[in-house]
């Protein structure tokens, strides 16, 4: 049994594949590839697939990962090439490698948020004011306690706002992983509510997944 980590890109129409459907999608792609994937032993054998950090429906990502197991040692370069031909449009294999860290090592993620708006300068200025507040209070749904009040201010590790032509680009670093996770949508919704500003369309791209040391999760 050999653990491997598959890195891939999720873009375009593929961003509408939900997390649950990603699992099925990869199972079928792996089946088509005929790579020797290890199955759980038991009453209902299935492929053992673990996505390190689920991606929200509608987000794109430059680098996602899923862990799986092969029954034998393979040339991972060749295996990646073979798998690349089996994925639907929008999902692109980047690399197949032995895992270095456990998924629990994930601490944060970088996002690029693009807000389409007729008045980029206004939107950018409002957003700057919003993140520079001393506290960014909003409601967050918690599994145990229902809606709870949280302050997002200490969680926005980095934020760079740039107004362009017809759009504003916001680069964010937010906590990610199993101990603390902030979805960019939470921050954007809080902004829209408090500032009363809406964009015509907002897209989110996850650009990097990082460990506590600030290096790429690998």
């Amino acid at each position: 049994m050999h653990n491997v980590r598959l890195f891939f890109e999720k873009k375009d129409r593929a961003k509408y594949i939900s997390h649950l459907d990603m699992n099925r999608c990869f199972q079928r792609a792996l089946k088509r590839s005929k790579l020797p994937v290890w199955y759980t032993q038991g009453f209902n054998p299935h492929m053992y697939l673990t996505f390190a950090l689920p991606l929200s429906l509608g987000f794109e990502s430059e680098r996602e990962s899923v862990d799986l197991r092969f029954t034998e040692e393979l040339d991972l370069g060749l295996a990646a090439k073979r798998l690349a031909t089996c994925l639907p449009a929008g999902l692109r294999v980047l690399e197949l490698a032995p895992p270095r860290e456990k998924p629990a090592a994930i601490a944060s993620a970088d996002y690029l948020v693009i807000a389409k708006t007729e008045d980029p300068a206004d939107w950018a200025a409002a957003f700057e004011r919003f993140v520079q507040q001393e506290r960014i209070i909003t409601q967050k749904r918690s599994k145990k306690k229902g809606m709870v009040e949280v302050d997002l201010k200490p969680m926005v590790h980095a934020c760079k706002v740039e107004a362009g032509d017809g759009e504003v680009q916001v680069r964010l670093n937010l906590p990610a992983g199993c101990s603390e996770n902030v979805n960019p949508t939470l921050l954007l919704d809080a902004f829209e509510q408090s500032a009363g500003v809406t964009a015509d369309a907002v897209s989110v791209l996850r650009t990097r997944i990082l460990t506590a040391d600030g290096v790429d999760f690998a």
């Binding site: 129409r13 509408y16 429906l57």
Partner: peptide
Amino acid sequence: IEKLLLQVQKPGRYTGGEL
């Protein structure tokens, strides 16, 4: 079309692009 997709249940059925 894209503008509508994130407002509906199961947008994966309206995008096409399947294998």
